[in-house]
Structures are given as structure tokens and as C-alpha cells.
Design a protein around this nucleic acid. Structure first.
Ligand SMILES: [Mn+2]
Ligand SMILES: [Mn+2]
Ligand SMILES: [Mn+2]
Ligand SMILES: [Mn+2]
Lengths: 217, 217
DNA sequence: TTATATTTTTAGGTAAAACTAACTATTTAT
DNA sequence: ATAAATAGTTAGTTTTACCTAAAAATATAA
């Protein structure tokens, strides 16, 4: 149906689209996928041709309904496979993302359905991200970036951006995991770094780090 | 490391090489992979460049030691995934081959090792084919094509060529499976079709069918 | 042993997916 | 409002992987 490259673009656009409803820029896609903006322009033209995105020159792209459906199907597979690797094959949560990047492109509706059943229809992946069901629905969990909290705020870790294994290893070292309670002790003005209390221990977290930690306030 | 296309060529050459030690023809590869001979010529040049095959113009290709190792790694993955699909995900043996054709290209040594462990290190896949171990060793099971038996010979089914789902469905309908005892009742001269006895029932099998059934005489 | 048939390779194309360099449109700052 | 900076597109290449048609080599048959 669609190529791996096309699926990667759809997924990237889906993630970058977030809440806002204005177009996703080619440069943000190129950063996300480690390609060059010129390559993205070509790619989105092909996607527009196939009615997977709406594309307006110089004003970015947006997924069509079909495009979004397919992106969600890929996200579903990615998160199910990550769950499989951690829950059944003894992988650590910090070493599954790369493999899931490959597995998410396997084409077989039956495989996804049976895998989901086999895993007991998990609602969240190992990084706390919700797993869409076969129809593309997923629980809207209220969560913020840790970086959005103010001094004095408390919250519980609900998810982490799993794109980098080194980040997840770093979290493990800091004793931060799903469900960990955090309290913002201080925020440095000049670099937005944060001091947080985790079970009586105080740790320093960079803005880069707090941007990739999701909390339920 | 190697592309899906390259891996498919290596696997095809491995299967076509069989016992004989003369070169595999480009046309046989093209038939096997549903491509054109011209495409194969180009592909084997690339493989020869990478020292995965020895190629002599007009005289076919042979896998190098490295090429064979990699082919066996792909075969190992293919058969492990088929086992996973049948043993754990409720797939039928006749619907796993196509999916395994995709899964065999996933690159992760840990994944293969953990999958193997998870499945209890199976020795055979659902079609009776031996699964190579991590080093590429697999049991040399003595087996012949059913088509090689003579009138009056008996044997036990030890494997089936799983490339076509329709063939496996046909076998199921004829009540032929792994371990089934067969006796050659008659062979027609003109089309080499065979009459075999299976548990008191007599069935007619075409040469195409008997070429794809392996037996232990 | 020559002629014919078959197989294989070469030559020339196409399409996807990437790249760099150059150009153009939009945004921002003066 | 204009100029400079930034972002985005176009043009021209490259590599992989396929194709068809034509040419060349090998195999076979008279
Ligand atoms: Mn992931
Ligand atoms: Mn994840
Ligand atoms: Mn198979
Ligand atoms: Mn098999």
C-alpha cells in the first residue's frame, strides 16, 4: 500500500501536528526525520498526490482524514511492538524504539490484531504513550510537559519521549520512571533548567530533559 | 547492513543452490523472485562487488562463505517468525509465509535471540523445515521429494514447500500434514501424476504437488 | 560443423528517495 | 517600506531497483 518512507512521513506529520491546526513546516519534518528540507518538499508532493495530506506551498502540510487514519495505524503498530518487546522478550524500555521503527511497517492486519490480543490489549506502551485501538481511538490523557510546570507544582510522570535511547537511560539513572512523583523546587531563569524533588532527593534537569517528560499535574 | 532486495537474492540463491555445487543461473533466480533476468544480472553484480557471491558471466552465481552465512541468518529469522505466528498468534500454517517474508528483514540480533528463547528454541518451523541456530547450523534431515519415490515405496511427510498458501490449503483439504504416512500406489507415465494411499484413502497428486512434498522414506 | 534456439548480458529507460546548490517566497527587523 | 534574514522550493545528481528491447554468448540439433 504505502512505502516505509511514506509511512514515516505520515507519522512524523502526525506527531508534529499536535494540537494546533496550522500546517506542519517542511523544515520541522526534516529535523524530525533527519533528512533535508528539499527531500521533504518532494515527499509531501507525492503524499498530496495520493490525497494523504493537504499541501500548500510555503504554508506546510496537514494530514487528510485518510492520512491521519494511516498514521494512527502505524503508531498503533509501533506501540504494540514496543509492548511486545518489553513484556514478552525481556527488552528494556530504552532499547525498543529502534526495533519498533522497523516492525511498525510490517503489513498484516491479522498480525496487529492477534498481537494486540496476545498482549491482552494493552492501553499504554512501555513509555506511557497510549496505544490507539483498531479504529484509531486512544484515551486522551491529560498531561503536560514537565517544562510547563511552575515552581512549587507537583505531578506524576505519565510518559517520556522515547525517541532517544540515551535519554531513557539517563532517566533510569536519575530514578525517574512511569508513576514517579515529582515536585518543582526551582527553575533557573537563564537556561530554564529545573530542580525537582524525587522521593526526598533533589535533581537538576535541563530544559531539553523537562521538554521530554510528560506529567499529570 | 544489506537491503531487503539483497537479502532476498541471497536467500533465493541459497535455496536454489541446493546440493549441487555449480552456479545458480540468473533465469532460475528471476523465476524464483518474480523479476526479470536482466534485473538479476544487475543485482548479482552488486552482490559480487560486496563479496557475497562469486559471479562468472554466463555461468551463474555461487554464495561465498559470508553470503551463505547471511542467507542462513535470513532463513533462521523467516522460520522463527513463522513459528511465532503459528505457535503464539494463532495463525494457520498456510498464512504465515507472506508475513514472514517481511519479518525476516528486521535487523536486531537481540530480537532474534530473544524470540528463539521465547519460543523454546524450536528445531523445525510449521512446515517441517529445520531452523538454523545462531551460528547457521541446522540438522541435516534425510528427506526426498515425494516425486522421487517409486511405485510401492512408503514414506512419512517431513516437510512442504511453503511458498504458496494455496498449495498448503490444498494439502490440508487432502488431509496431508507433517507426519502423515504415504504409500505410492501408482505413477502415471505421461504426466508423472501419482496415486498415493493415505490412511486407506487413495488420492491423486500432480507432479507439481509431489515436487513440493518432502518425505522420509 | 554449421545453423538455430535458448539463455544471458548490455543498453537505455523509469521511478522512488535521497542529496547539494541555487533560487524564490515569506518573515522580521530596521 | 524597504532590506536582511530565514524558510521553502526548484533544478540537477546519485543510487537502488526494477523494466523492455537489442545484442552477444552458450547450448542444442541438424
Ligand atoms: Mn518508540
Ligand atoms: Mn513508545
Ligand atoms: Mn515460509
Ligand atoms: Mn516455512
Amino acid at each position: 500500500m504505502f512505502s516505509q518512507s511514506e509511512e514515516n512521513y505520515l507519522k512524523a506529520i502526525f506527531h508534529l501536528q499536535g494540537e494546533t491546526d496550522d500546517g506542519v513546516s517542511t523544515s520541522s519534518i526534516s529535523t524530525h526525520l533527519n533528512t533535508k528540507a528539499a527531500s521533504v518538499t518532494e515527499a509531501v508532493k507525492r503524499l498530496a498526490e495520493k490525497k494523504l495530506v493537504d499541501y500548500q506551498k510555503y504554508y506546510g502540510v496537514q494530514l487528510t482524514e485518510t492520512g491521519k487514519e494511516h498514521a494512527l495505524a502505524v503508531v498503533r503498530k509501533h506501540r504494540l511492538w514496543e509492548s511486545f518487546l518489553v513484556d514478552r522478550l525481556n527488552f528494556n524500555w530504552d532499547e525498543v524504539h529502534e526495533v519498533a521503527e522497523q516492525l511498525e511497517h510490517i503489513k498484516s492486519i491479522k498480525l496487529v490484531e492477534e498481537l494486540d490480543k496476545f498482549l491482552g490489549r494493552p492501553a499504554y506502551d512501555p513509555h506511557g504513550d497510549p496505544i490507539p485501538d483498531a479504529k484509531g481511538n486512544m484515551p486522551e490523557i491529560p498531561r503536560k510537559k514537565l517544562s510547563q510546570l511552575q515552581k512549587g507544582d507537583r505531578g506524576t510522570c505519565k510518559g517520556f519521549n522515547d525517541a532517544s535511547s540515551s535519554f531513557l537511560k539517563y532517566l533510569a539513572k536519575q530514578q525517574i520512571g512511569l508513576g514517579t512523583a515529582v515536585e518543582v523546587v526551582n527553575i533557573e531563569k537563564f537556561d530554564e533548567s529545573m530542580t525537582v524533588r524525587i522521593a526526598d532527593e533533589e535533581v537538576q534537569l535541563s530544559k531539553t530533559a523537562t521538554d521530554n517528560i510528560y506529567v499529570d499535574p
